[in-house]
Computed example of a mutant assay.
Amino acid sequence: MKTWFLFGVILTTLFSCSHKVENVEKSFYYWKSDEWNFSEKEDSLLKKLKVNKLYVKFFEVEHSDAMGNYPISKTNLNMYRADSLTIVPTVYLRNSVFINASKGSLDTLANNVNFLINKYVNEKFDRQLPVKEFQMDCDWTLKSKDNYFYFLKQLKVLSKKEISCTLRLYPYKYPDKMGVPPVDKVTLMCYNLMNPLENHTKNSILDLEEMKQYLDTDNAYPLHLDVALPTYSWIQVYQNNQFSKVIYTDVKATKKILKPVKPLWYEVTKDTVIEDTYLRIGDKIKLEELTAGNIQKAISIIKRQIKLDKNTTITLFHLDEKQLSNYSNEELSGFYSDFCK
């Protein structure tokens, strides 16, 4: 009996152990479109955390029947420092771009994306800055999969760069159904797990039980996996019981004019203007925020359920002093170093 008991303990230990990363490359997403440079706090934070890599959203691509595909939300970030960071140009592409697209339009899209990225690198960044990787961000579906994958192949040929793309948890768990993108590596997005407007009782940014279910798979993903974690919070505004908008703001300051109603839900107690949005007494607010403890638990789950490579990039979303003020420098540093423990 003792032998079988010990054997069971050994098996449990083996299959519940976490997977340690030997070397973490620290990174942030930079997702702003209206800033010329980092704030002093953001610049200082990068140096204190020894972060040397940024995934910068260069622009987004929208689609309309009248205009076709067109870029919006172009970055205004400029960097001409001698000690420039490693910059990875990142482009967000709406899924609608790839629905019913022709091969000719996808060839044009790949050419335009490659051209515009290179134009921004030359105009807004140090010309000596070596850009080795482009990242594409798209929530592809079964209907858009083939066209999106074709675009990725064409971009690889044109750019002659390493191509990565973001990977949501659903296509991570079901690669046979959703396909494996033809890229060099993927970044697993461990947040935005559900539609924020459909489930009013869960935190749509990061729900640990939901994440566990998606990571519960016996098959290793066939591409190198990097990991992205959320460090942001937001409020969803409901006026006259109708969803109005999402606001990224200082959660601590906003709470001062909110009255708790039920888990995640608050009511505005004072007419206030926040981020150019007029909040009225009685407006309903769904506040989705993350603590350092939430993120640390997510890291434990990821380490336990995913076998990451020895060298992995961990990226926090995103570099914004208001959002990052919710965490101490020690906590932010731990979001990287915990993968090596």
Rank of each mutant, 00 (worst) to 15 (best):
Asn199Met: 09
Glu209Met: 09
Asn192His: 12
Lys212Thr: 02
Ser204Thr: 04
Lys185Gln: 11
Asp207Ile: 03
Asp207Thr: 09
Lys212Cys: 03
Met194Lys: 10
Asn192Phe: 07
Glu198Thr: 10
Glu210Arg: 08
Lys202Glu: 13
Leu188Gln: 08
Ile205Thr: 05
Met194Trp: 12
Lys185Trp: 06
Cys190Phe: 12
Tyr191Cys: 04
Thr187Gln: 06
Tyr191Gly: 03
Pro196His: 13
Leu197Trp: 15
Val186Met: 06
Gln213Phe: 11
Leu188Lys: 09
Tyr191Asn: 07
Met189His: 06
Lys202Asn: 12
Tyr191Thr: 05
Leu206Asp: 03
Met189Gln: 11
Asn195Gln: 15
Asn199Lys: 12
Leu197Lys: 15
Glu198Lys: 15
Leu208Phe: 02
Leu197Pro: 10
Leu197Ala: 13
Asp184Phe: 02
Ser204His: 10
Ser204Leu: 08
Tyr191Asp: 11
Lys212Tyr: 04
Lys202Cys: 06
Val186His: 01
Asn199Arg: 10
Asn195Ala: 11
Leu208Ser: 05
Met211Phe: 00
Gln213Tyr: 13
Pro196Cys: 11
Tyr191Ala: 07
Leu206Cys: 03
Ser204Val: 01
Lys212Met: 07
Gln213Ile: 08
Thr187Tyr: 12
Cys190Val: 14
His200Asp: 13
Lys185Pro: 00
Pro196Ile: 06
Leu197Gln: 15
Cys190Ser: 15
Leu208Asn: 03
Met189Gly: 00
Asn203Gln: 06
Lys202Gly: 04
Asn192Ala: 07
Asn199Thr: 09
Pro196Ala: 09
Asn199Phe: 12
Met211Glu: 11
Thr187Asp: 03
Asn203Arg: 04
Leu197Cys: 12
Pro196Gly: 09
Asn203Phe: 06
Asn203Ile: 00
Leu188Glu: 08
Asn192Arg: 12
Leu197Asn: 15
Met189Cys: 03
Thr201Tyr: 13
Lys185Ala: 14
Met189Ala: 04
Lys185Asp: 11
Pro196Trp: 15
Cys190Met: 13
Met189Val: 04
Met211Pro: 01
Asn199Asp: 15
Thr187Val: 15
Asp184Met: 01
Leu188Thr: 06
Leu188Cys: 12
Thr201Gly: 04
Asn203Tyr: 05
Leu206Thr: 00
Glu209Val: 01
His200Gln: 14
Met194Pro: 04
Thr201Cys: 08
Glu209Asn: 13
Asp184Pro: 03
His200Gly: 08
Gln213Gly: 09
Asn203His: 05
Tyr191Ile: 05
Asp184Ser: 04
Pro196Ser: 08
Asp184Lys: 00
Glu209Arg: 05
Asp207Leu: 05
Leu197Val: 11
Met194Cys: 04
Asp184Leu: 01
Cys190Tyr: 11
Thr187His: 06
Lys202Trp: 08
Leu188Asp: 06
Ile205Cys: 03
Pro196Phe: 13
Lys202Ser: 12
Val186Trp: 08
Met211Arg: 02
Lys212Pro: 00
Lys185Tyr: 10
Met194Arg: 09
Asp184Ile: 00
Met211Trp: 00
